[in-house]
């Protein structure tokens, strides 16, 4: 465990006093205990609740984010937003990173991602609907996130966007991957810049794989077509993987 992480854990446990257990497992630090909160959101009710949770913080934190499990058996299989392994799916990875980077500490992670998730669960349990909406499952959810943040409809455009980010990072003078014919800086510049800043090597790569897999299945079924320059770019990028 790095010293920085030790301090971050100290700050976290000073604020959330119930997260009192700290243990080491291989290259992870596991922080667990009770997480009581009183949370509100604009225009929504205040919810006071408490969950047993377990945060598994990798040594590579903050490059890799913690995994979170609810260990009190409260969140059952009727709630869809957790994985087979029991970890909570707080958001699609790039969105999770974007929110995390607004306050890149362990305390920020819990306050901005974990508690809103638990609040969303309690709200859903009570009212049968999601207060903050929900993302589509799997690769589709990742792809939709790109389409939604850029205001696009065509799935092949999401593939063009992730190819652009994976290959170039951010280049303002390039043609915008949305296909408008404008330069990036005159078109989707700000949104692409945010995505670029949010990504690291590993996350941009895994989003590329996810979106490609999703689109390629549709391509094989004949539901989607890729223009030739995009096909060539995909081939170039596959050589990088």
């Amino acid at each position: 465990m790095t010293e920085d992480l030790q301090r971050q854990i100290a700050v976290l446990t000073a604020f959330h006093k119930g997260l009192a257990n700290i243990a080491r497992h291989d290259a992870d630090t596991v922080v667990s205990g009770t997480l009581p909160f009183e949370a509100s959101a604009d225009g929504l009710e205040t919810i006071t609740e408490s969950f047993e949770i377990e945060l598994t913080v990798p040594d590579a934190f903050p490059e890799s984010l913690p995994r979170v499990r609810e260990t009190g058996g409260r969140i059952g299989n009727d709630y869809e937003h957790h994985n087979a392994s029991g970890t909570l799916c707080l958001a699609v990875p790039v969105e999770q990173r974007r929110i995390f980077l607004e306050n890149p500490t362990l305390l920020g992670f819990v306050n901005r991602l974990v508690i809103p998730y638990l609040y969303g669960y309690c709200f859903w349990k009570k009212h049968g609907r999601h207060p903050f909406d929900e993302a589509a499952h799997g690769y589709e959810g990742i792809l939709r996130h790109y389409l939604d943040t850029l205001g696009l409809a065509d799935e092949a455009k999401a593939l063009a966007v992730i190819c652009y980010l994976f290959e170039h990072g951010y280049r303002g003078h390039h043609d915008c991957p949305c296909g408008s014919g404008l330069r990036v800086r005159a078109c989707h510049g700000p949104a692409l810049m945010i995505l670029h800043r949010t990504h690291n090597q590993q996350t941009v790569r895994s989003d590329f794989v996810a979106i490609f897999e999703h689109c390629f299945a549709k391509f094989q079924d004949g539901q989607l077509s890729f223009p030739t320059p995009l096909r060539l770019q995909i081939l170039r990028l596959f050589n990088r993987l």
């Binding site: 909160f37 009183e38 949370a39 707080l90 999770q96 903050f132 993302a135 499952h137």
Partner: peptide, 27 residues
């Protein structure tokens, strides 16, 4: 966060106001 969030009181849970929450997902 120390400045922006209300300080937790003894035996009362920390108060959090949620803004810009993420949509939950599944792998």
């Amino acid at each position: 966060d120390i400045l922006v969030l209300p300080a937790p009181m003894i035996d009362t849970p920390p108060r959090i106001h949620i803004t810009g929450a993420a949509k939950p997902w599944r792998e």
